[in-house]
């Protein structure tokens, strides 16, 4: 008995050491690559900017005050949130039926359909945005086509619509794949049971599929929202110089103005807003459905 216990205990100790050994590097990387820059950002955001000396070390709230007292910056934040919410809602509206159809498909073309949805992810978002620019630009395909039909062109480039369309096109694959995998885990017999009990397709969806798919759908929504809040290339290329969202603004302050303190403050404000709104969205989901 004693002889048996000893190696077992040794084994568990060595197991624990092994676990620490494996988790250690990852923990270190996360700490160094994520936490440290965030702390650095926080520190920078409290510094003062000087045109000649760039960053003067001090502790001041003036960067935050500047943001929250200037209607221009508040407007940028509002636009960012509006664009993110709109594209998230659209992504869910387009994504849910697509994901459901895909999850329930038994067609031999299913894997081909999946591939078609994943394929856009192989093309960089900047390249895809250039595609949208060709479509939307003044004298572009859409403009010319509409002009040919009713004589007056259609200017879509540099409008909020263009930006939302661009973000939706980028985020939709993520949304579809996330919801689809959530729906795949729902036993199809549950839907059949609902039907056999007299539920027509619509009621069956709302009473059975929707509540069960809600946690997965919420995750898809949050994913989409976070991606949209932080979108950079899309608003920059499709929104043009006058359509301001947080990420391009931040980058501009950072690289063109060299105003690191204010850029840091912008980054932290963007991150906190995203976090707070994501947390709030969780309250929309009834407790018992939460993942």
């Amino acid at each position: 008995m004693v002889e048996e216990e000893h190696p077992a205990r040794l084994k568990s100790v060595s197991k624990r050491t092994a676990a620490t050994g494996f988790l250690g590097p990852a923990t270190l990387v996360v700490t160094v690559m994520l936490a440290a820059p965030l702390l650095l950002l926080l520190r920078f955001s409290l510094n003062r900017f000087d045109i000649k000396e760039l960053m003067i070390e001090t502790v001041t709230a003036e960067n935050y005050l500047r943001f929250f007292t200037d209607p221009f910056y508040l407007g940028v934040l509002r636009t960012t949130v509006l664009v993110a919410v709109t594209s998230t809602v659209l992504c869910l509206l387009f994504g849910l039926p697509l994901a459901y159809r895909l999850a329930r498909s038994q067609s031999r073309w299913k894997s081909l359909c999946m591939l078609a949805i994943v394929l856009p992810l192989f093309v960089g978002s900047t390249v895809r945005m250039v595609g949208w620019m060709i479509l939307f630009a003044h004298g572009g395909m859409l403009d010319s086509a509409v002009r040919w039909v009713n004589g007056v062109g259609l200017e879509v480039m540099y409008t909020p619509f263009a930006v939302v369309a661009g973000i939706v096109s980028i985020n939709l694959p993520y949304v579809v794949l996330t919801i689809q995998s959530a729906i795949e885990t729902i036993d199809i017999r549950i839907e059949e049971a609902a039907q056999s009990l007299g539920a027509p397709p619509g009621r069956q969806f709302w009473l059975v599929v929707w509540p069960l798919a809600l946690p997965g759908t919420a995750i898809a929504g949050i994913l989409c929202f976070i991606l949209a809040m932080n979108a950079y290339a899309t608003p920059y290329l499709l929104g043009g110089p006058r359509f301001q969202m947080m990420a391009p603004l931040l980058y501009w302050e950072f690289s063109t103005n060299n105003n690191w303190p204010f850029a840091s403050a912008l980054a932290l404000i963007l991150m906190s807003t995203t976090l707070v709104l994501t947390a709030c969205s969780n309250l929309l989901i009834p407790r018992r459905y939460r993942a």
Binding site: R189, E192, A193, L197, A199, P200, V208, P211, R288, Y289
Partner: peptide, 20 residues
């Protein structure tokens, strides 16, 4: 008739109860 109008009582191997 579609399944929801056939008035069949169905019992499955996997129970298929509504988990929520």
């Amino acid at each position: 008739l579609p399944p929801y109008r056939r008035e069949m009582g169905l019992v499955f191997q996997s129970y298929a109860l509504f988990p929520h």
